[in-house]
Design a binder for these strands. Sequence first.
RNA 1: GUAGUCGUAGCUCAGUUGGUUAGAGCAUCAGAUUGUGAUUCUGAGGGUCGAGGGUUCGAGCCCCUUCGAUUACCCCA
Length: 462
Amino acid sequence: MAKPSIPQGTRDFSADVVRKRNYIFSTIKTVFELYGFEPLETPAMENLETLMGKYGEEGDKLMYKILNNGISNPKNIEKSKAGFEKVLEGKSSSDLTERALKYDLTIPFARYVAMNHGRLTFPYRRYQVQPVWRGDNPQKGRYREFTQCDADVVGSYSLINEVELASIYHEVFTKLNLTGYEIKVNSRKILTALAEVVGEENKVVAITTAIDKLDKIGIERVKEELKEKGLTGEQLELIEAYLTMNHEATGTLSNAGKLKFLKTFFEKSATGQAGIKELEFLICHIAADVNISIDVTLARGLNYYTGIIFEAKAPAEVKMGSIGGGGRYDDLTGLFDVPGIPGVGISFGVDRIYDVMTELNLFPENVQNGTRVLFFNMGEAESQFAFGIMQQLRSEGISSELYHEFSKINKQFNYAEKKQIAFAVIIGSKEIEQKYCLVKDLKTGLQEVVVFDTLAAFFKNK
RNA sequence: GUAGUCGUAGCUCAGUUGGUUAGAGCAUCAGAUUGUGAUUCUGAGGGUCGAGGGUUCGAGCCCCUUCGAUUACCCCA
């Protein structure tokens, strides 16, 4: 057996990491609950056909498909071989694989809503915190197993939902002290309108993925890319005009200013006007302290978003990029033959949030609350007695441990220090006789005498 | 999937143009010290140099393959 290891892009989480992650989870969940969302969990795996084709070509490639059981069974072997041939041609075959690990939480949620739409009360607000898997090449802030925290509202066209979801971003990031966050917002309708105005309705995706890179590669290279995709000089000029407000005046144009610009630009486009109305509603209704800005280059989830799209960005100094995203999809369950249920949702990328918070040193100290009190082991009879006292403390909700064996005091202190235990309680024969114990504060080194009866109260007051 | 950088003790890293038995700091363990530690002293353990193959009299060092980490592209949280 080679050295034990774990698959690429996956991680073990030690106690301190789990506690910090839980801190993020509970912050997010608390806010979700506060906004009236209810929890949902779905299986780690879905039927392959539920997921295939929902995330675009790239998604199909990165999805983890699960090999069927029994493919080596002699009676299946011909089928398996035929299936394998199909897979080699780039198709999928249920003879070889019919299940896959979930790739995000949105599509499984849509499947759930489609299956249960008769039973759910609409608008249905649910949140979901679960791991997802993508066979992507790991790098900074990118893992093959990571956790998403989603909140979606389905069964409502109201843009108030968008306002609420943006507020949730703000509230969560504020609670986590991630004050440098930024919410970018755009509308899929505006991107569609741009393609229309340019006269290339069927190239929406090509155009938007190109202009999405504006920040990164600059206007010239965006134009080059668009040229390669077959756009004429005239069309490029139009797109450049559209991008002007981003690339020449980044940050200097207010949301209102951008809306004004868009209104003129899309004067003759009904789709464009509809998109502008969405953004206008959101901008007008959101609280002033929410850091939200219109970004007409923002493109994401082009396979299913239809209205507003969101992206939450980490503070610029950490170079992490997106720590959350979301948007409106007006007919998501239509994919599962249940048309007419609109929805809108957002997602938090906990793993990236964790990395950002670590880099910025934002975790509060009291996140690590393991054992508070260590009872020293001063011998067999003494430890037996201490055990009784310890159980009383535990019943009062004070997390305590008894050192597992009688050994040098020195060792017991070291153990306490390593586990960052706040207090040591020493109960030896003398203390048992006189019905008190010694409590040592391991940070200050100060020591007090406390009678047994008041021990629990003593720690509660600390 | 493509490309670059890296892989030596539990951790952080030295290691000369290829040359005896691969080193340091920290950590660990034992002792000084079985009722008051975390600073001091003494000692000890710990490595198939990521794995496999090749070149060479000789490889931690050079070559190939492979795995992993990391960064960038693509895409994304």
